[in-house]
Design a protein around this nucleic acid. Sequence first.
DNA 1: GTCTATATAAGGATAGAC
DNA 2: GTCTATCCTTATATAGAC
Lengths: 211, 211
Amino acid sequence: MMGQDRPRTRIQEKNRATILDAALEVFSQHGFRGATLDQIARAAGLSKPNVLYYFPSKEAIHATLVDGLIHDWIEPLRALGPEGDPVEEILAYVRRKLEMSRTMPRESRLFANEIVQGAPRLGPEITGAFKVLVDEKAAMIRGWEEAGRLAPLDPYHLIFSIWATTQHYADFDVQVRSILEPKGDVHFAEAEAFLTALYRAALTPPGPATG
Amino acid sequence: MMGQDRPRTRIQEKNRATILDAALEVFSQHGFRGATLDQIARAAGLSKPNVLYYFPSKEAIHATLVDGLIHDWIEPLRALGPEGDPVEEILAYVRRKLEMSRTMPRESRLFANEIVQGAPRLGPEITGAFKVLVDEKAAMIRGWEEAGRLAPLDPYHLIFSIWATTQHYADFDVQVRSILEPKGDVHFAEAEAFLTALYRAALTPPGPATG
DNA sequence: GTCTATATAAGGATAGAC
DNA sequence: GTCTATCCTTATATAGAC
C-alpha cells in the first residue's frame, strides 16, 4: 500500500530496477495472479525474501510497475497535436503506437492482462486521467472533421480502433506469429503499410477531386 | 487429461452444462490461474467436490470449455464466402464479429486471456486449424484484389485488424465503458457504424468514378 | 450424486542468522 | 543486504459418510 519513497543508494536503485524489469517480464506473461514471487526472484537473480526486502509485497511491485509505465504508455496520444495536416497527424499517431507494440510488447501485455480482467488493479486515478485525455483528443478530432479536414468518423471509436489494431501486434503476438509463421519481425513493416493505407483511405475527406 | 465421454443421464448433462457456464464466467473474468474452483462451484450453485465429480480437474474444465467453444468462435470467418460483392461480404464478416463481441463477450475474453499469456493451454490442433482457415480466406481475399474487386490490402493484416477492432469491444469492455461512460450498450450501434465506414472506405476499389 | 472433512501442495510473507 | 528456514493462508484434489 505505501510506497518506499525515502532516499535510496545506487545499489538499492539498481536492485529495484532489476526487480521491476523481472516483474514486467513475469507479470506480462502470466498476469498478476499467474505470476509468482519465485518466478520474479529467479528472473531477477535474487532470492524471494530479498525481493521482499525491496518491495513490501507482490501487489506493491505490480503497483509500482503500473505507476511507472503509465506515463510513457499514454505519451503517444498526448503528443497528438493540432499542428500540421490532420490525416498525417493521426497516421503519425498510428505509427507511434505500432512502434510501441514492437519495442514495448511486455508493457502492452501488462495493461492488456489488467483490462481484460476488468482492471481490478488500475485505480480510478489512472482510468480517470485516461478518460480526460481521450475526451480532449476526441474534441480536437471532432473539430478537424467539422472543418472538413478529416472524413466524419466517430472520434472515440476511431481512437479505440487505433488502440485495437496497433496493440494487437503486441497483445496477440503468439497468434500473429502462428499465422504468419516464419518471417521474423517483418510483419511490423507490413502492418505499418497496411494500417497506413487503412486509415489514410478512411480519414481523407471526400474533398474536391484530389486524384 | 482424459475426457469423460461415456453416456450421461439428463441430470449429468444438466450439471455439466451448469458447471461449464459458471466456469466460462469465472475463467473469462480472472484467467485460468486467477480462477478458483471455489468461485466456479459457487457460481454453479454446487459444492467444490461435486464439481470435481463431473470433471477430473480444473484444467479439464477449462479444456472442455475451450474445445466446446472453438467451433462457434471461428464460424464467422468460415462463413466468409466467395458469393456476392467482396466489399459487402467482408463488411458482413465485420458485423458478425462485432455481434459476437456483444452477445458472447465472455467467450471472447476467455480466448483473449489465453492468447495474451502465450496460449499455453491452446493446443497445436486449435492454432493449426486456425492457420489453415486464415490461409484459405486470405487467398480468397487476394483473389478478389487481383480481380480489382477490392482495394489492394494485405489480406492477413486485414483479418487481424478486423479481429482487433471487433473483439476490442468485448476484451477491453471496461476501458470502453469507462471512456464512453453512461450510455448503456448504445456504443455497439456506434461501433458498427464506425467500422462499416472505416472498412468500406478502405476496401472499395479505386474503380472508375463511382461517386 | 452430494456433502463434510481432510490431505497435500503452492505461494506470499516473516524471523532471524550472518 | 542477503540468505535459510519457516509460518500461514489459499487452493487443488481426495476420502469416505450419507
